[in-house]
Amino acid sequence: MTAMSTRGFARLASGAAGTNFGYLDEQTKRMIRRAILKAVAIPGYQVPFASREMPMPYGWGTGGVQVTAAVLGPADVLKVIDQGSDDTTNAVSIRQFFARTSGIATTTSTAAASVIQTRHRIPEHRLKEGQVLVYQVPIPEPLRFLEPRETETRRMHALSEYGLMHVKLYEDIARHGHIATTYAYPVQVAGRYVMDPSPTPKFDNPKMDDCPALQLFGAGRERRIYAVPPYTRVRSLEFEDHPFTVQRFDRPCALCGAADTYLDEVVTDDRGGRIFVCSDTDHCEERRAAGHRGEAA
């Protein structure tokens, strides 16, 4: 845990100055921090917390926003992405929300950010020690797909009864010939708890493993917080004869030429023209600024 004794933990322990800094009152923030500390202590375990009403609807990342509010300090620099982009309505409004309620600096640069709140992606740029990645989570329970009773899923977690997760993968292969789950692909954290990495593409799963940054997950509607401390083993579930693989793209980014990033399909005109470009807009722009070019640029 030495790696944790950097800014991540210092921030959790200190608390912020102003009463309304980060919108939430200090007591609420302390309650959320306690949940976060517990989550960090038990990697992958879903910690219940008293989720508050936020000035935005559920589904807009209220869980992530509360976690972010609880960990932000005045010196932090915040980046918010949605599907890899800093420019969507959701990302922009959350960034503005924190700029307004805490007066902190914001950025679109992964490298410059100390806290990154995300929906659906992990930045391509390798995260570093001291950074905190906050995930917005809609459904935290990976077992729910097959076992709707929460009393039962809790017991299954407690007893490490995770056969059911493989049933889900089995169903995938039986139906599609391969594991067709491409988002929210289940992982096992530190050899113990099975966790839903939120609807990130499985392309990003390997980035969670042994990651130098602290990863926090907040589910507002479901009132759960869970975490992956820095440098923790995160394994994607698999079968011996159907190992975990990430998506491959058969062409590089049309803008920056990157061949190792997650691509989005973008319609370019009304005649069915389309190109594939980096989903991580900041990463793509940095590469272009450095002189990399794709076929459409």
Binding site: G163, H166, Y170, E240, D241
Partner: peptide, 13 residues
């Protein structure tokens, strides 16, 4: 297959 997976079977075939 569920019971087999529950006791650790991890070979789909």
């Amino acid at each position: 297959g569920e019971r087999l997976m529950a006791v650790g079977a991890r070979h789909y075939g």
